[in-house]
Amino acid sequence: MRFPDNPVKIEGIEYVYPTVSEYLSKQTVYAFLFAFLAMIVYVAFRFKSGLWGIVSVMGIIHDIVISLGFVILANKEINITAVAALLTVAGYSINDTIVLFDRTKENLKLLAKEDFVEVINNSINEVLVRTIVTSLTVFIVACSLFFFGGEVMHTFAYIMIIGTVLGVFSTIFVCAPLVCEWGIRRSKRLETVVKHGDVRSK
C-alpha cells in the first residue's frame, strides 16, 4: 500500500554495537555499586551502626531485583530509561527506610525501658500513615504516567509502579524484621555475658 501524499521520513537511526552494550552494562553495574556503597556509608554514619546501612541496602537490592524481574517478565527493553527508573526506586526505597530507622532511633531513647521488638513495632505504627500517604501519591503519579505519558515514559512509569509498592513492603517486612532480629540476638548475647559475669563474680 502506497501513500504518495505522506512520504516516509526517517528521523534518525541508532545502532547499539556489542562494544557499546558491554560499556553500558559495566557503567550500570558501577552506578549501582557506587550507590549501594554511598548509602551504606551514609546510613552507617547517620545511625552510628554499619548494620543499619547493610540492612537498608539489602532492602534496596530486594526492590531492584524484583522490579527487574517484572521488567524481564513484561519483555520490556532494559535501556538507560530502565536503569534510571531502577536507581529512582533505590532512592525512594532508602528514603522510606531511613524515615522508619530515624523514628526507631528516637523511640530507643524515649522508650528505653521497652523491649526492642516493641520499639520497632511502635515505630512502624507511627510512620505507617505517612508511608501509605506518600507511597499512594507516588503510585497515582506513576499510574498517570504509565497510562497517559506515552511510549517514552512507559517503562519508567512501569518500574516506578512496582518499585513504589516494593519500597513499602521491604521497609516494613524486610528491613524492620532484620533489624529486629539483630536486636533480639544482641539482647540475648548481653544477657549471656551478664549471667556469666555474675557466675564468675560468685
Rank of each mutant, 00 (worst) to 15 (best):
E151N: 08
T131W: 08
S144I: 14
F173Y: 13
V133W: 05
M160C: 14
F147Q: 01
H196F: 10
S135E: 07
G150C: 02
N121H: 05
E191P: 05
V129Y: 07
G167R: 07
T137V: 12
S144M: 12
F169A: 07
N122G: 06
N125Y: 08
H154Q: 14
S187E: 15
S187K: 15
C175M: 12
I162L: 05
I120F: 13
E114L: 12
I124V: 15
F139G: 04
I172S: 01
S123K: 07
I161H: 04
I132R: 04
K195R: 13
H196Y: 13
R186F: 11
G163H: 00
A157W: 01
I140E: 05
K195L: 14
E191I: 08
E114K: 11
F156R: 03
K188S: 14
C180D: 14
R185K: 15
F147R: 03
V141R: 00
T155S: 11
E151C: 02
L145I: 03
A176F: 11
V193W: 06
N121E: 09
V194Y: 06
I159C: 01
T131V: 10
S187M: 13
E191S: 11
T171P: 04
N121V: 04
N122A: 12
R130A: 08
E191N: 13
A142H: 01
T155F: 00
A142N: 04
V119W: 02
N122P: 07
V129P: 00
T192N: 09
L145K: 06
I159Q: 00
G163N: 04
V174H: 03
F169Y: 15
F173Q: 08
